[in-house]
Amino acid sequence: MDPKTHVHTHINGEPVEFLSEAYRSLLEILRDELMLTGTKEGCTTGDCGACSVTLDGRLVCSCLVLAVEAEGRRVGTVEGIARGETLHPVQQKLLEHAALQCGVCTPGIVVAATSLLERNPDPTEREVRYWLAGNLCRCTGYDKIIRAVLDAASELRGASPNVLE
């Protein structure tokens, strides 16, 4: 048995403790130990974005974060985006725009897009495309995803719908 570290962290606002070997990724612990399987594994090399989470508010690939690095920090996953029964506007707009087909990249897109809108409430189409360039989707061609995120941004601003570039 390899030695384990006792890690104290917050996940989606709740205090959480777990044990992890030094080499395990945050993604592995989230999925295999804490059963938070909303965060997906697409590559484990930081190329696909399916495992996107926030760490102290910063968007990261959880496959590239060691689990022990979560000590004393705040982790945000897709399971923490909706407020009870109420979906986040990004989630709602993805549904309304039919911006998912298989849906396996969707949790990563939700986390990445909400993270974008927190720091840039009025992004251009180009800004959304570049922000989401780390989130691979093989089904949609991104068109409806981009529209949904721009639409969610307008709703969050309380503005009329964004005009595309």
């Binding site: 999925r31 295999d32 399987t37 965060t39 997906k40 979906l87 549904l95 039919a98 949790p107």
Partner: peptide, 23 residues
Amino acid sequence: TRPIRHDGIDKVTGRANYGADFA
């Protein structure tokens, strides 16, 4: 018509179970 898909909320909230999500 263009209704919201029935399995949509599970898929935007991370609840939907894909191949690797079962144990």
